[in-house]
């Protein structure tokens, strides 16, 4: 934020007696219900935002547990049947020497989802407790969560491609396990949870800190 010559004080729509449309960026007088340009319901701050975030977050987390316990892939080769979980599959890949791919799978299906659960929870808690963390860092976190969340779907797509492709009667076949279902749900619910977060709250906490600081 070091842009010399630009004063750092901004006026928010709420301070100016306005309500913003978060879809088309149009300003309306405070109290307007619906954006007349794009039809979005207008709220100055989404007061139920955190409730929605936590509810969807919890469902996502609940789906993530069976996603890791049940098998993701069921591989049948001649007479042997091999069932592997997400982490088990990555470990197998590493055994074959495909470290790069094992890392992609581990990052996309373990590191990103867990990081996302942590980041969303952190954001939701930190906007409540004032003055613990700089807004810029919270924003960066929000942007990373928004951008990276979708990439967890990669594992589902790998399972889809493999189980469609490897269907060689009698020789080898791959079928998806129940974990694929739960994992997809987990990704979808965490995406919805991140979308429910109202990022405008990040700065409200900060500006209240500033006011408190000025009073001191």
């Amino acid at each position: 934020m070091e842009f010399t010559g630009i004063p750092q004080k901004t006026v928010t729509a709420r301070e100016a007696g306005l309500v913003a449309c978060t879809r088309c960026n149009r300003a309306w007088p405070l109290g307007t219900d619906v954006c007349r340009r794009c039809g979005k319901t207008l709220v100055s701050r989404d007061v139920f935002s955190l409730q929605k975030v936590w509810a969807l977050w919890l469902v996502g987390l609940m789906c993530y547990v069976p996603a890791n316990m049940y098998p993701m892939l069921r591989t049948q080769q001649l007479f042997t049947v091999d069932e592997s979980t997400i982490i088990g599959g990555a470990v197998d890949l590493a055994h074959y020497g495909a470290f790069g791919i094992a890392a992609v799978i581990l990052v996309a299906s373990v590191v990103i989802p867990l990081g996302k659960f942590w980041a969303i929870a952190f954001l939701a808690v930190s906007v409540r407790s004032k003055g613990t963390f700089a807004s810029g860092k919270r924003l960066l976190m929000y942007e990373i969560v928004e951008y990276i969340g979708r990439w967890s779907m990669i594992d589902i797509f790998v399972v889809a491609i493999l189980s469609a492709l490897v269907q060689l009667q009698g020789l080898a076949s791959i079928t998806p396990g129940p974990a694929a279902f739960f994992f997809a749900l987990s990704v979808i619910f965490t995406m919805l949870s991140a979308q429910a977060f109202d990022p405008r709250m990040i700065w409200d906490a900060q500006s209240e800190d500033d006011k408190a600081f000025e009073n001191v």
């Binding site: 901004t10 006026v11 928010t12 729509a13 709420r14 100016a16 306005l18 913003a20 449309c21 978060t22 879809r23 960026n25 149009r26 300003a27 924003l139 990022p199 405008r200 990040i202 700065w203």
Partner: peptide, 10 residues
Amino acid sequence: LIVCPICDAT
């Protein structure tokens, strides 16, 4: 006017 959808700056 234009309002930033992320931080409400006007």
